[in-house]
Amino acid sequence: MQRIAGLILALVLLSFFTGQAFADTTQGERLSRTCAGCHGTAGASPGKLIPIIGGQLQGYTLKALQGFAVESRPGSVMLKLAKGYSEEEQKQIATYFAAQPWVSTSHAVNTMLPADLAKRCQGCHGKKGKGKNNFPRIAGQHPEYLFQALLEYQQGERNDSLMMLTRKMDETTLQKLADAYAAIK
């Protein structure tokens, strides 16, 4: 019995070492491939206003998809597209993107994050802006997208009690925040 087990183990190990065989695709990956049209391959969006979603936290992406589907979160095409996927499929998509490498924006300008502002953001977004749980990674996101999002919070178009602090900030401050977090790799 042990010899058979040993043989099976050897064969399994052998299959790992004889080069990467074609692996079955998960449903999440399959569904997420169409997203690349706007969000880039594996969610590494090369644009400015379409966000990087590859490597974004699963909890946040799922929250975003759910919000789009019921239109509680502002959006454009996502308000329609998100409705095309069931709750289970949305979970699979969010899980797939969370597992992808985060590729930071290529058009950030080196901007220092003022300590007093950083203190107010890092509680939820982490010291380096990498996010946690349902709070998104913002480090390395496109500065244009970040600014647009902050503006939407400031104007009350996006509703989240935790982002109310933007209501008292002017556009210059919002731009500074966006630029600073975009510049963190």
Partner: peptide, 19 residues
């Protein structure tokens, strides 16, 4: 119609070409 959609259109092209 909106200018925002116009900017998304530009980003879409960048994205799909990279894909």
């Amino acid at each position: 119609r909106s200018k925002l959609y116009g900017r998304h259109a530009e980003d879409w092209a960048t994205s799909i070409w990279s894909d």
